[in-house]
Simulated assay, not measured.
Amino acid sequence: MATLTHDTVVVSNRLRSGLLCAALSAAAFGLSGPLARGLMDAGWSPASVVIVRVLLGAVVLAPVAAVQLRGDWNLLRRNASLLAGYGLLAVASAQLAYFNAVAHMAVGVALLIEYTAPIAVVVWLWLRHSQKPGRATILGAILGVAGLILVLNLRSGAQTSWIGIAWAMGAMIGAAAYFILSAHAGDAVPGTVLATGGLLVGGFGILAAGLVGIVPLHATTAPVAFQGLTVDWWVPILALGVVTAAIAYVTGIAATRMLGSRLASFAALGEVLAAIVFSWMLLGQTPAPIQLLGGALILIGVVFVRLGEPADDQNAP
């Protein structure tokens, strides 16, 4: 009986710690859009913001990754294609598209569009691997598409940024690549090593594209203005690199390992709420009621999509 009680306490503590890490990760990721929008309004290009964010995050995570690697540099060579794909698709493309989207539309709306990524993953697995979705998954996809239509609010009479929508859809594709590549078994690459390698590849990839003129690179030392607050340029830069990159990835990885991928993915939906709150606080952006309804449908749809997945997560407490 004592052993059973001890095991129950351990599982309860693990669940509590995992949910705390997941909440911290969601809040940290949700802060990235508003901070990036402030920098872009001050004269920074989206590519420059992404480069600084991911490379600074990689510098912070590098010591932890080196410890996890334990001198096994062959592990990196054996998984070079995975690291390259993760860096270019899941990091560079997703972040660059998302920051370009928030430059043309509200942060919360852009993130809600990006969060239709699990539906894209279902379609990909169906077409590529003939994994036919179940009823719950199909219902979730229908709810997600309906929510997306409401989020776009096309019949409101307000001007719709089709450029922003296109960028947000690009971010959705990048996020779908993140889910697919993160689930790749590869050669058992530790989570922090994968994150650090991906951040480095993504950051230097966008930097190279900027140096040859593919994407514009602009930066300024002008103060950054938020709603009722003006700060030096380095304050949001430091927060983007340390908080929204390094801390967000580390706590997200920890949450996944303590909760299992399915429960952690549910908890990660808090990023949308965090982004909406931070956008309201820092930018004064508030979604219309019909967009909030659409966002709720998207999140409910994602939950159904997750519930429709095979229950093969062996790490769940």
Rank of each mutant, 00 (worst) to 15 (best):
L125V: 10
K132C: 05
G85V: 01
A168E: 08
G203V: 00
V52G: 09
V59Y: 03
V277R: 00
L152R: 06
A274D: 02
L199F: 15
L112E: 09
V102H: 00
G295I: 07
L229P: 04
I165N: 09
V11N: 00
T256Y: 05
A47K: 03
H129T: 11
Q131D: 08
R262W: 00
I149K: 05
N315C: 05
M40G: 05
V49E: 05
E114S: 09
V189P: 07
V277M: 06
C21R: 02
P46I: 03
V242G: 05
T286Y: 06
V67P: 03
L127A: 07
V10A: 03
F29K: 02
I149E: 07
T244Q: 00
P46C: 01
P289G: 03
W233K: 02
A58N: 13
L112W: 10
L297D: 09
L292V: 13
I237F: 01
G164F: 03
Y98K: 02
P190G: 10
R155S: 12
Q227H: 12
S32T: 09
M172Y: 01
I247E: 01
T244K: 00
D312N: 13
G308E: 12
V10W: 00
R14M: 03
A166E: 09
I237M: 09
G210S: 06
V189A: 08
W44R: 02
V122E: 04
A185T: 15
I119K: 07
I113S: 07
T5R: 11
Y249D: 10
M281H: 02
G308L: 13
L263V: 15
L307D: 06
S45H: 03
S12F: 01
V102T: 10
N100D: 03
G202S: 05
E309W: 00
D72A: 10
A27M: 15
N79H: 08
V272D: 03
L19H: 12
L199V: 13
G30P: 06
G203P: 09
T192F: 05
